[in-house]
Every structure is written in C-alpha cells, then in structure tokens.
C-alpha cells in the first residue's frame, strides 16, 4: 500500500504526500461535521415542546453565545481536525481534548442531559464504525494484568473517543451559535450559497416534519385512545398524509420567505468583522489544541509524577 501510494505520488502533478494526508483528514473531519448536523436533525424528542430545544439553547445570552459565529466555527473546525489527526492507536493523548466541550458547556449553561441523549442516538453508528477492528487486528499490543489487549481493541477505543469528541464539539457549536448564525459564518468562509441554503432549508424542513409528526400522533391518539402506537393498517395513509402536508407547509414557509425579499442569502444581521475578543477566543483554543496534539499531556504528567516519586 505504502509503495503503491508512493508510486502514484511519484508523478509530477500529484500533491506531495503530506498534503494528501491533510486532504484526507479534512475530508474525514468534513464527514464528521456533517454527521453532527444530521445528529441534531435526528432530534426525536416526542413532544412538540422539545423539538426546537437546541434552537432555544442557541438563543441564550452567555459569554460563549456572544462570541462571533465565525470564531466559533473556525475553532470547531480546527478542533475536529486535531481530533481526527491523532494516530490510529492513540488513546491517552486524546483525553485532554474533552476539556473543550466540557468548558464550553459549562460556560454556556447548557443542560448536559439533552445533549448526552442526542449523543446516545448515534452511539450505535459510532460503535458500528470501529466494531470490526478487534476482529481484524488482533496482534497483541499490551498485556494489562493478565489480559491481552489487541491492537484492534485499542484502535476501537481510539475511534470511539474520537467520534465522541467530534460529536460533542459539533453539538456545542450548534447549541451555542444557532443554525442561522452558523449559516452566516459559513457564507463568510465563502462556502457556496447553494450549499448553505440547502443546509438551512433541510434543517427547517426537518423541524417542520417533526412538528407535523407530533401533531399527527396527537390527533391520532386523541381519536384512538385505546391503541398503543399506530395500527399497522393506518400507517400508509398516515405517512403519506404526513409527507404531503409537510411538503405543503415547507412550500408555504418558503413562499413567506421569498415574499419578504429572501433571495437565497440568509442575513442574520451579523457583520463579518471579528473583535479582539473573538480573535483571542479562537487563538486561545488553537494554542490549547496544538499543545495537546504535540505534547502527550497525560504521559507528560505521568512522567512528572513518577519523576517526583523517584
């Protein structure tokens, strides 16, 4: 494989190896980021009341919320890149990165439980990605108190931790920024308008769909008080109805948007300039991430302790 890659890269036009790796990392972090967004959309709280909880959290007024969306977006992107750039078998070095979401959640006064619940929703996917590693990669790496720990298990832990961190990072971004401002930040980064628009409308559509589902279920259960769940015979017409109604509502909402001068550019009233504070926020975190990336802090602390012990 290595040889093959090198062979390919030998050509004059191919990008140098180092860039290739970075591109791959970028791509991976892009997937993780999108996945985080999908996760938010998968907001399946049953009651109408909770459907837009994350939107509401984004309206809080805390230090973190007041940071410029672009600064937060860049911080999160760098965070994701740092997370996925750790080696396949790295576990301990990753751990200090948990401080980022934890500190943000604390400062932004975000209730932890709903966030963790949403994380649980995708846990099966997350575990699925690394699930085969222990089977395919069973060369012994450590022996821990008589237990043989294979490379597969170590990489499995590593992947799980990375996904957990990436999801936490993305969720805290959404919850402290809000989709509209996030879109504005993406536009400031010159992400093509069409993609941002698609993201926003999909996001709107999902919350409309959720609301219609909740309403339909309410209407159904009021008229069928003795059924537990929806009877199989009604599923088809219920689902079809739901689809058409949501489509209709999405169209009306879109109409209302264009009626008011919407031309595909979401204008959230933010100007693109960041203040000194925003820049400091960004730089502060980047310094922290890079320190964690290039110095294995747990090992460092460990050696300090053992050094003192000697």
């Amino acid at each position: 494989m290595q040889v093959l890659l090198k062979g390919k890269l030998g050509g004059a036009k191919a990008p140098p190896q180092i860039f290739r790796e970075q591109i791959a990392v970028f791509r991976r972090s892009g997937y993780v980021f999108l996945w985080g967004l999908v996760l938010h959309m998968k907001d399946i709280m049953k009651s109408l009341y909770n459907i837009r909880l994350l939107d509401e959290l984004a309206e809080k007024q805390t230090v973190v919320h007041s940071i410029h969306p672009l600064a937060k977006l860049l911080t999160t992107m760098i965070y994701l890149i740092v997370v996925v750039s750790f080696g396949k078998y790295e576990v301990a070095g990753l751990l200090p990165l948990i401080f980022y979401p934890v500190i943000i959640i604390a400062l932004a006064e975000i209730p932890l439980l709903p966030i963790l619940k949403r994380m649980l929703l995708v846990a099966p996917f997350a575990l699925g990605i690394g699930a085969f590693n222990p089977i395919f990669d069973n060369a012994t790496m450590f022996v821990l108190g008589g237990f043989r720990l294979s490379g597969g298990w170590v990489s499995f832990f590593s992947i799980t931790i990375k996904l957990f961190l990436a999801l936490m990072g993305t969720l805290t971004l959404i919850v402290t920024t809000g989709m509209d401002r996030l879109a504005a930040a993406l536009r400031m980064l010159r992400v093509p308008r069409i993609f941002v628009l698609q993201l926003l409308l999909t996001y709107r559509y999902i919350s409309l769909l959720m609301e219609e589902v909740a309403r339909t279920m309410q209407a159904y259960s009021l008229r069928a008080p003795f059924h537990h769940g929806v009877q199989p015979g009604v599923w088809g017409s219920l689902a079809g109805n739901l689809f058409l109604r949501t489509l209709q509502r999405a169209q009306s909402v879109y109409q209302a948007m264009v009626q008011r001068g919407f031309i595909g550019e979401y204008n959230t009233g933010y100007d693109s300039r960041m203040t000194i504070n925003d820049t400091l926020y960004l730089c502060g975190w980047v310094v922290f991430f890079l320190t964690v990336r290039f110095y294995n802090i747990p090992v460092f602390i460990g050696s300090l302790v053992t050094g003192v012990g000697k």
């Binding site: 309206e59 709107r204 009306s252 919407f262 204008n267």
Partner: peptide, 29 residues
C-alpha cells in the same frame, strides 16, 4: 406588496419574534 398569510404558522419561521420581524429588512440589506 406585503402579504399576510391565512395561517400565521407559515409566516413565522425564525427562532425569536424579533428575528422574524427583522428578517425582511435584513434581506434588503
């Protein structure tokens, strides 16, 4: 033309009332 829809749910789509009312003026930059 300013058009008021029959169903206000179709017309309000932002997270706060303020942002919703500001949506139009902001679109006109």
């Amino acid at each position: 033309i300013g058009m008021l829809f029959q169903n206000p749910d179709d017309q309000l789509f932002m997270t706060t009332v303020y942002d919703d009312v500001a949506f139009g003026p902001r679109n006109y930059k």
